[in-house]
Design a protein around this nucleic acid. Structure first.
Lengths: 135, 135
DNA sequence: CTGAAAAATGCAAATGAGTTGCATGAAGCG
DNA sequence: CGCTTCATGCAACTCATTTGCATTTTTCAG
């Protein structure tokens, strides 16, 4: 974290720990709730911490299908980039196995309308859990 | 449009004409502005028309990288599904050539966390225009 | 150490795309 | 014609996120 030029405060480490132990990317609200469970923190601070971590490349920010974001540890050599599944009923965002997703060929970036900084692949639908509950 | 179970009112046809002549997917606000240019219409009506058209499968609704949506004609046999480029500075959303994007293999949908209804692929970055203006 | 400068946090209020409730108007249909 | 359904308008609301500003807390030169 320090190496990303970000001071390691208690709050920030807690955010990283929470994101690191999550099985899917979390919303800012979920991170906030998880933090509230043991410490007092302001909602805005959570947003700002997430912003810093994203800025520092430690955390990945991806768009859900509902006009909100999810945060998770940034991909690295152990955790390759991957696509996500979004359930439009419950808002769950699940990670998909990386091998199932051919990342777009960096084909002739000269043909791109600009400099590409990141790529998001999201499959939208209804998760099994919701499908059984709302038939 | 009728075949999609949607009454063809003047407003709705106008929305379709605007989306059909756009070179990239438009925001609801852009559609609204374009409509205002020649007729009087309410902002909410635009949202509801877009919603109907999406519901009827005539129009495609995709998420931009900034917590808002863009609307365009739905893919069909002439216009295959494709990825989009989003400029984080100006909000431009450009269509990418379909051949540059291997759509995710519908690999073993049994492994998916649910029923997949649609897929969005978005490349985020800075468009050439903005890169030259904000160096 | 000490004290100014920088960064982090909290609190309240704002932002802005999108949505909802309810009233009015237009279209279909017997 | 009268009734039901759908489409539009208007005002107010929602809600994730952001901003402004005051208040710690940390850093670092002297």
């Amino acid at each position: 974290m320090e190496e990303a030029g970000i001071r390691a405060t208690t709050h920030r480490l807690a955010v990283l720990r929470i994101l690191g132990s999550a099985s899917s990317p979390m919303s800012a609200q979920e991170v906030f709730d998880a933090l509230q469970a043991c410490r007092s923190i302001n909602r805005v601070t959570v947003y700002r911490i997430l912003e810093s971590l994203v800025e520092g490349g430690v955390v990945d920010k991806i768009s859900a299908g509902d006009r909100s974001f999810r945060y998770g540890l940034a991909p690295n050599e152990n955790h390759p980039q991957h696509a996500h599944f979004y359930c439009r009923l419950c808002g769950l965002m699940a990670c998909l196995p990386p091998e199932s997703l051919p990342l777009p060929s960096r084909s002739s970036s000269s043909m791109m309308p600009g400099i590409v900084e990141k790529c998001e692949i999201r499959l939208d639908g209804v998760c099994h859990h919701c499908r059984l509950r709302h038939p």
